[in-house]
Design a protein around this nucleic acid. Structure first.
Lengths: 348, 348
DNA sequence: TATGAAACTTATCGCGCGTAAAGTTTTTTA
DNA sequence: TAAAAAACTTTACGCGCGATAAGTTTCATA
């Protein structure tokens, strides 16, 4: 007759297996440094051997604060948001948090539902890229009163904590470059999916006026719509049918629009680039992963999503009272605007 | 003195607010159809008014089966996987489940960690796009013994439930087309990130042999690596330096490779397309959202991710004992191979 | 209107863990 | 080596809800 080792399901089982009391083991899981070094090593060895992990529901049921962070992105198939998400998830996990990602998919109902889901999870804090719909402003603001909320990509309002790109700086950069290296750019705006649409438009206007140039806006009919490529492709096809762009240079509010412009120009037989025989220059904004593989490679401005993610979660931890290892000095206020970097490639 | 309405935090509070007993309210949340119609309407009105949602941790702590589904994708910035994810999330939510998405990001450690996270959540079932690393086969198989697991995109082994594209059919389709409409295609293989790499390669070989043609494989050095565009770009640049492709037609194992090939060909001054003056034809596989906006638009084979997602979760619900409204007949076995649809565009 | 079934109520337990209090052992410090 | 401090153990409670049993009301059907 051989001993049948019973499976370790609960922390009770596990503590018996380790040879320590459950409260001690519990303390370890909440903060490994709260137990003696020798104890810690014993537990860690046992964890490795048994594969035990505390039940996440039980852990979070009776906690002052859960170890769940909420993340809301406006579009789950956009590589920019997903890269940002990945970055944040990684840092959160290292700090012992679990990041729960939900997408509003451009729909206010889904954004609201995500908020409710987070409420039912009693999340410790949230990082949100908001749609910027007026109807949800109140609910988001209310959430921000009960738990720390950091906004990314586009701000909720003028006072809430925010980390994002300095559109004024980035558009000045690209407008200056385009003007210096050729003719002045006209502006292909985003569909009004969030506050960036307006902000970037104004940033372009300001950059042009600084150069004493008249801003030129292309004005395709636009409703909120995340299919940027299709929108830009269709609008460009129409523009080209109706006599073409007002200048030889098109500055797009984001790269995905530029993809659509490039495709439509190609199919119209136009050569895009800054060389001699070229008909059109096209520039974007964001530096999507695929931008460098466009034909021609897209000249754009790179948003630093690694830094946006890092600073957003650092700001969140700061408000949660976590002290990160790195003693990075956070800016005094809670509105961080990062500078963008120009990526000179072949399209403009 | 006016009445201060106390906040509704627990189901106890809520049931008092509604004027019903807690067990009845609990029954409602577990299955709205288990209570009388009038009762249901009363509760629904109260939910709407108060915004109450049961605490997700308490709900899942003491349940036979949680209402959490686990999803593992191998890459969180690939639009194909994210579109699949979105589809599955949507259906899961409608059925009252919460889909928790984790990405293995191409790393076996992360896949294993995701498995452990799911274990600690006691998930009801899982849908997994596996990396196909041998070392994890056992752990995945073991998970499959305790809860229903459906594999998508690439199968775990020959017996586990799987929903994906029929590579033999899809490659026959594209190889036949390419051969018929021009010269025979050589094959640009995927980096060996999962079993699709080998399977697609064999599907190409078989399709070529059916036509009595000699398969031609390009053999760039390849380690597992999800940066398909960069890999293909670099490899193509080298191939072009060394004399070019063996045939005028390149069939890529997936679209993202084709993006890299297109970019490298463009930068080498080659004209891609099926017209008279063209130097090269390029075709892909998958039909990524951006494929139609390439220059030229990419000829490819469309994976039906909507159907893959729908069938995967239907299969999962079936094993969970859920009876979906649609009385769709599921195939007798648990290995579903979907046919792909050819997308004729300008690149080949 | 009677009669059983269906739907409700009340009462109670326990899921697995965090947390606190009080007592005991081990380690540090003087 | 003694005293103080730190780390542990034991005991107990409760988080919010699912689940069940036993009793009560409401409903459907004849």
């Amino acid at each position: 007759m051989h001993a049948v080792k019973k499976p370790i399901k609960t922390m009770e089982d596990f503590s018996a297996f380790v040879g320590l009391s459950r409260p001690t083991v519990s303390k370890y899981f909440n903060d490994p440094n709260s137990v003696r070094k020798t104890t810690r090593e014993i537990i860690e060895a046992a964890v490795k051997q048994s594969g035990f992990r505390p039940n996440i529901f039980a852990v979070n049921l009776n906690r002052r604060r859960t170890n769940i962070l909420g993340l809301i992105v406006p579009n789950s198939t956009d590589p920019f948001y997903m890269a940002l998400t990945r970055r944040i998830e990684g840092i959160a996990e290292q700090a012992g948090y679990l990041a729960f990602v939900l997408s509003s998919d451009g729909k206010p109902e889904l954004e609201e539902r995500a908020l409710e889901t987070f409420k039912s999870m009693n999340i410790a804090g949230a990082i949100i890229a908001p749609l910027g719909v007026q109807s949800l402003h109140d609910k988001l603001a209310k959430l921000g009163e009960s738990i720390p909320v950091i906004y990314v990509d586009s701000p909720l309002d003028a006072t809430s904590p925010f980390v994002g790109t300095n559109n004024k700086q980035s558009f000045k950069l690209i407008v200056d470059y385009l003007t210096r290296s050729g003719d002045e750019p006209c502006y292909f705006g985003m569909t009004p999916v969030n506050s960036n649409a307006l902000e970037r438009r104004e940033a372009y206007r300001e950059a042009m006026q600084n150069l004493d140039l008249e801003p030129r806006f292309l004005v395709p009919e636009a409703h909120a719509n995340w299919e940027f490529e299709k929108f830009a492709f269709d609008a460009t096809a129409q523009i080209l049918r109706e006599g073409g762009f007002p200048t030889k240079t098109v500055l797009c509010a984001n790269d995905r629009l530029a993809f659509g412009v490039l495709a439509a120009a190609y199919q119209a037989g136009l050569k895009v680039g800054r060389g001699e025989g070229c008909d059109l220059r096209v520039a974007g904004h964001d530096d999507q992963p695929l931008s460098r593989y466009m034909c021609p490679p897209l000249t754009t401005v790179a948003q630093n999503y690694n830094e946006i993610g890092r600073l957003a979660i650092e700001l969140l931890f700061d408000k949660l009272g976590e002290t990160p290892d790195s003693k990075t000095e956070l800016p005094g206020n809670s509105r961080i605007l990062l500078n963008a970097e120009i990526k000179l490639r072949m399209s403009a």
